[in-house]
């Protein structure tokens, strides 16, 4: 009897965690589509690393581990990191990739310093903050999942409402500006939504690997479709799949961190898609090339 209740208890936790992982996978997959199409995949990496000191600061200032507060700290730090990157590019001769690497490593290093400082401070409440580095989906509570659901839902609804505007911004920014859409504002909005998607996933996936949750589902989805709406839906699906399967696998064995497992599942989707997707997949490509070669060879063979 005791065993049964233990199982039910565990099962309930697993359901909660899986729902959380699915939600954050879907949100990061959908918004990652825009980052990938704008060639800003690495910006996601910078944002997730830059978010770490924000989490530490939020904890130092409030002493609270409530996900909303930590997420807010992460978002602010992620935003500041992005702004610094963009300002470096605009004001100096330093190139985008260098600025990105610079900000990413500096912020992440600073975050690590702060986390070590917190750990040594003897504050008993601090245990578990380090899950933000590599992620631990098992630490997701019901209220965390609720936070992910609400914030992620708002982000997705904004994408839906501004579908046409965001599509135009990503495809042809100059034309969008010429017909009167405020591209700078839309750009800031889209980046903010990306920041939200990233910080929502930090607790489960971790700062180090979160960018893969932005990039991988979108890259996989692009292989299967030539339409933006399908690509967003597929990317959300791949993200949710990776989230759930990664969580389940990591919870079935001890001491496997969830974040890396989720990423491996997402990478699995990418591998399958690159190999097998019709039209863009490698295997179909190979078959097509061989067929073309054969069709071309026959007539020339006759000529010689």
């Amino acid at each position: 009897m005791q065993y049964l209740s233990f199982l039910i208890q565990n099962y309930y936790t697993l359901i909660i965690v899986a729902i959380g992982a699915a939600l954050l996978g879907a949100v990061s997959g959908a918004l990652g589509t825009y980052a990938v199409l704008r060639r800003q995949s690495l910006l996601g990496d910078a944002i997730s690393h830059a978010a770490l000191p924000g989490i530490a600061f939020a904890f130092i200032l409030t002493g609270s581990k409530t996900s909303l507060i930590l997420i807010l700290g992460a978002a602010i730090a992620g935003w500041i990191g992005t702004l610094i990157i963009l300002s470096i590019v605009r004001l100096t001769r330093i190139k985008y990739d260098s600025a990105l690497a610079l900000v990413l490593s500096t912020f992440f290093g600073f975050g690590l310093v702060l986390l070590t400082f917190i750990q040594r401070s003897g504050n008993a409440n601090q245990a578990g903050l380090d899950t933000f580095i590599f992620g631990q989906a098992a630490t997701l509570l019901k209220r965390d999942v609720l936070t992910i659901g609400i914030l992620g839902g708002v982000a997705l609804i904004i994408v839906l409402i501004l579908w046409k505007e965001l599509k135009l911004l990503v495809f042809d920014e100059g034309f969008a500006a010429s017909i009167g859409f405020p591209t700078r504002t839309l750009d800031i909005l889209l980046t903010s939504l990306l920041v939200i998607a990233i910080v929502l996933g930090l607790q489960a996936v971790g700062a180090v690997l979160m960018s893969a949750m932005i990039v991988a589902p979108a890259v996989a989805a692009r292989q299967w479709t030539n339409r933006l709406n399908l690509m967003v839906i597929l990317a959300a699906g791949f993200g949710a799949f990776a989230g759930v399967s990664g969580t389940i696998i990591s919870s079935s064995a001890t001491r496997i961190p969830t974040g890396p497992m989720i990423i491996l599942c997402a990478t699995f989707c990418v591998g399958i898609s690159i190999a097998f997707a019709p039209k863009r997949g490698l295997i179909w490509d190979g078959i097509r090339q061989r067929r073309n070669k054969r069709n071309l060879k026959l007539p020339t063979g006759k000529l010689i």
Binding site: L162, K164, E165, S178, N226, R227
Partner: peptide, 29 residues
């Protein structure tokens, strides 16, 4: 705009791109 100013691998089709010319008179949303 210059043809080279956009990424032609963007996932969309011909009709959809042409309809973008209507976005200005359609306005927001």
């Amino acid at each position: 705009p210059q043809r080279g100013s956009v990424d032609w691998d963007f996932p969309t089709n011909v009709l959809d791109v042409v309809m973008m010319g209507r976005y200005g008179s359609l306005g927001w949303i």
